[in-house]
Amino acid sequence: MENVVELKNVTKKFKDFSVENINLQVKQGFVTGFIGANGAGKSTTIKMMMNLLKPDAGKVNVFGLDYRTHEKEIKERIGFVYDDNVFYEALNLKDIKRIIAPAYKRWDNSLFYQYVERFELPLNKALKKFSKGMQMKASLAIALSHHPELLIMDEPTSGLDPIFRRELMNLLQEIMMDGKLTVFFSTHITTDLDRIADYIVFIQKGKLVFNQSIDEVAENYALVKGGIDLLDTDTEKAFVHVHRAATGFEALTDNRKAAESIFGDSVIIEPASLEDIMYYLKGGIYHV
């Protein structure tokens, strides 16, 4: 099984918003980062992966199984971390564990306490008194203690300080060492992904822009900078977005090689960060 999660032509419509015709695959043993601006459809997509929302059309497969027939089997193998605290906030971690643990066949109590110790989490303090970072650590400890094969996280790093964000990335690499765990997480803090993500899924206004490996992104996308006089209707075809200023232009290309052959040495071509790509594609993808 190469694809742990597979979405085929998935569509979900709401009154004022919709995600349309999403096709995406999450590859086994890798970190897939899910990026997009706030309101682009990240949470909706994740909710459909968790069967919290049912798509109007299309198919969602997890571990090659269908939720309609294998809901429990699928969720048995998923660990989840959400942006908001979904645990009973009046309870302490010990009581929450008493509620969650029996739900999983493979719950590992000693592993849970290892994480509690490692994250320095108090067991007898109500969750509502936890800081944002501590709540996230608690969610993570719970999510990892039943040996999940797929870890789904919705904006796990929002509201966390850079130190913990980096620690989290290290932890993920550590627990992925045996190659069995697959990680899918959404974020709008792209520096986390520049670091360790293997695949990037980019969603914009409910539509999938791309689903590429980090190498492909680096090979295809680039920033091109040069003098305004170089631009005309022909040369501009190489770009997905152009920003013009009196001092020159800065443009994003999704075809680095074409841009190189058109402009040669007359421009500066630099790698585009995920943030650059998100910024320049904010108006949606279209060729100028």
Partner: peptide, 19 residues
């Protein structure tokens, strides 16, 4: 070192070390 070990040590993605 294994692909994953190297990725972790360098703090980069597995797909890069794999390549």
């Amino acid at each position: 070192p294994s692909i994953r070990q190297l990725a972790k040590d360098l703090q980069i993605s597995v797909i890069t070390t794999k390549r």
